[in-house]
């Protein structure tokens, strides 16, 4: 952990939140559950500024993950809009949304979601592999490998480059997931219950990583959690209850 934090310190940049980067307005989302329709999100509007660390707190089933998916262009709302840097994501083509997910957004999930066939280095480079053609990637392979190795080193994972996810602990897998999310230097990092599957100590280490990313690299982070203590690490806490935004702390 000491290696990880010292590595992060090397590239510390501090600035204050200012420009609006992400905005949701009147978001509504429902899911069909058999014959009934469950209204998961009800008129949710949020403004996120660049460099801001926001936590969306709520109980299980409150709609917080759904909100994160809508904000991260992983899903489409029934009503309402999601704007990224002033552009309505809903009006973009599927390929344009894929492009935003590839270059502008990074995702960290509760269950890590690493590809089991790829090793740590390959998992980290996944976004770059997707962005570039075979020839483009091959001609820059060394640069990508070095960059991925640097990011992994900053997260204390440089000794596990050739390991497969199945050979890693939960905390290590989550660090690889974070490295993958950071590989393409995303404008916004979405973290969905990133410590939900980890023990308290490892979860705290992961939160420290996120906190330092925000503080030292001015990374915009949107964190979804059911844990009030973790949520308080953020600049701003939004509480979601039964699909309705309750208050802003």
């Amino acid at each position: 952990m000491k290696r990880m934090t010292s590595a992060l310190k090397e590239s510390s940049v501090v600035s204050t939140p200012s420009k609006l980067i992400l905005r949701t307005a009147g978001l509504r989302k429902s899911f069909k559950m058999g014959d009934s329709v469950v209204q998961v999100l009800k008129d949710v509007s949020i403004d996120v500024s660049a460099g801001e660390f926001i936590a969306i707190e709520g109980r299980s089933g409150s709609g917080k993950s759904t909100l994160l998916h809508l904000m991260g262009a992983l899903d489409e709302p029934d009503e309402g809009t999601v704007e990224f840097e002033g552009r309505d994501i809903g009006n973009l083509s599927s390929a344009e949304r894929s492009n935003i997910r590839n270059k502008q957004f990074g995702f960290v999930f509760q269950f890590y979601h690493l590809l089991p066939e790829l090793n740590v280095l390959e998992n980290t480079m996944l976004s770059a592999m997707i962005e570039y053609s075979w020839l483009g990637f091959r001609s820059n392979a060394r640069r990508f490998r070095e960059h991925a190795a640097t990011v992994l080193q900053q997260l204390g994972m440089d000794h596990r480059l050739k390991h497969r996810p199945s050979q890693l602990s939960g905390g290590e897998r989550q660090r690889v997931a974070i490295a993958r999310a950071l590989m393409n230097s995303p404008r916004v990092l979405f973290a969905d219950e990133p410590t939900g599957n980890l023990d308290v100590e490892t979860g705290a280490q992961i939160m420290t990583v996120l906190e330092r990313l925000h503080r030292e690299q001015n990374q915009t982070i949107i964190l979804v959690t059911h844990d009030r203590t973790l949520a308080r690490t953020a600049d701003r806490v939004l509480v979601l209850k039964q699909g309705v935004l309750q208050k802003t702390e």
Partner: peptide, 16 residues
């Protein structure tokens, strides 16, 4: 299926 979700979340297109 989960892998498909992962690579799509990392920016892969449907065609890809």
């Amino acid at each position: 299926t989960k892998d498909i979700g992962i690579i799509k979340s990392c920016g892969a297109t449907s065609l890809g």
